[in-house]
């Protein structure tokens, strides 16, 4: 392995790569938490009897689903940038 390759792998001095890694980590963690929130919301909705409350929870669920989708797309884009 050449020295250049080794340094690229270590990426120790590359602040851009470091930031990218941090963003990736942050997004993964938040997506995980959103997925857990989505699971909990689905359980709560199935148990909710009040129609109005159910509608509100359903609304929140739609937001969480959209956020998860947006997060996943952002993560994929960052990973793509990292690979190129």
């Amino acid at each position: 392995m050449t020295l250049k390759k080794l340094l690229t792998r270590l990426n120790f001095f590359d602040t851009h790569a470091l930031q990218q890694r941090e963003s990736e980590e942050g997004l993964s963690k938040v997506i995980e938490k959103l997925q857990e929130k989505e699971r909990q919301l689905r359980v709560t909705i199935s148990l909710e009897r009040d129609e109005e409350e159910r509608e509100l929870l359903q609304q929140e669920l739609s937001i969480v689903v959209s956020q998860t989708r947006k997060g996943t797309e952002l993560l994929a884009r960052i990973r793509e940038e990292g690979d190129s």
């Binding site: 963003s23 980590e25 942050g26 963690k29 938040v30 959103l34 997060g71 952002l74």
Partner: peptide, 13 residues
Amino acid sequence: EGTETEAEHMIAL
């Protein structure tokens, strides 16, 4: 600042 906070700001619709 924190990596997760930043991610939340990115994901917010």
